[in-house]
Design a protein around this nucleic acid. Sequence first.
DNA 1: CGCGTAATTGAAAAGTATCAACACTGGTGG
DNA 2: CCACCAGTGTTGATACTTTTCAATTACGCG
Lengths: 187, 187
Amino acid sequence: MIRKNADLLQYITEKLLKESEDTIIAQSFSSGEKIVDQKKRVFSVYIIKSGITKCYLTEDNGVDFIQEFFGEGEIFGELEAINGEVSFCCIEAINAVEVYKIEASYFDQLLEKDITFNKHILKALSKKLTYTAVRHAYNQSHTLEDNLLRLIHQFPTLIDEISKQDIANYLGITPRSLNRVLSTIKP
Amino acid sequence: MIRKNADLLQYITEKLLKESEDTIIAQSFSSGEKIVDQKKRVFSVYIIKSGITKCYLTEDNGVDFIQEFFGEGEIFGELEAINGEVSFCCIEAINAVEVYKIEASYFDQLLEKDITFNKHILKALSKKLTYTAVRHAYNQSHTLEDNLLRLIHQFPTLIDEISKQDIANYLGITPRSLNRVLSTIKP
DNA sequence: CGCGTAATTGAAAAGTATCAACACTGGTGG
DNA sequence: CCACCAGTGTTGATACTTTTCAATTACGCG
């Protein structure tokens, strides 16, 4: 499912209007570009203005696993800014993507001085955590068919927007299995 | 794996000494008791002083899936306090458990007024999220044998402390499969 | 048209669940 | 002291699900 965070996007947009400094800058990426790379240091926090990215890990055995698809208002790089570790996942643009980029040091300042911003981040983190936990519990406890039906129900147009390979990587299965199950539930 | 958070426990312990009010109170639970129930409102935030709890979801098909085992210093109930939703999981004592209990309203106050506490929570959330994401990516991308070896490597005494059924629920498999794989890697 | 990428499919192999039967353990009461 | 019981763990046989792998088709674009 493609995650969104309208509240955060609105807050950042308004914030940008008030502070005309260059602490928050816009940046563009085209399809296939990596915005954040795995196991590298991250110096900025990003909030998506438009477009879709995938957040995925490449495992030691070469398998890609997609954590989430990020849409408008979703934030990334914040985990690395908060705990100072290298990124554990890779963020890649799926189509044309525009982001707001915040320097990590300024992000820290905002967390300390702007209570509303702080609350937005706390909420964003807790929503991400809830979503991740619930999704994985469902994934592990249900059949492939249930998982696919749930995905289609939550986001009917996903199959048109995202490649089969990516959907398979999101569900943690092979494209072959995806096709087999799709053919059993479609007709 | 059993998660811990020494920093947070230390901070709360010190905080408790300074403020001798009844805003943070100690509470005990015995093995099998539910501390937080699924899909219920939560009015407090808990930090584990001693003992082990399991954090699990019961799915609509009756399957239990264990998210994490919580040890000393781990916090729960904070997600519900932050976003105001009902609990999505159940917290149950595995052995004798002592916790510090913080009223949700006081927790909110602390977040606003105590910057250090706020940072502790931000770090706790981001660590939980990183851990959850990495674990599930690994789980979905590797064989059962790899998952089990990883678990044993991370926490060698787990099998002695926790029931087979719980370990199976943690890995998202049946006890039968757990036994089969155990017998292939042990001798 | 021809090329590269993505999508599709079949058949065999590997992995996992299901289910029922059996073993082990500690506690209880006759 | 033994029989019984409940909970937990173990195991084998079978059915089902998913992966693997290779071959084939479909599609977009210079």
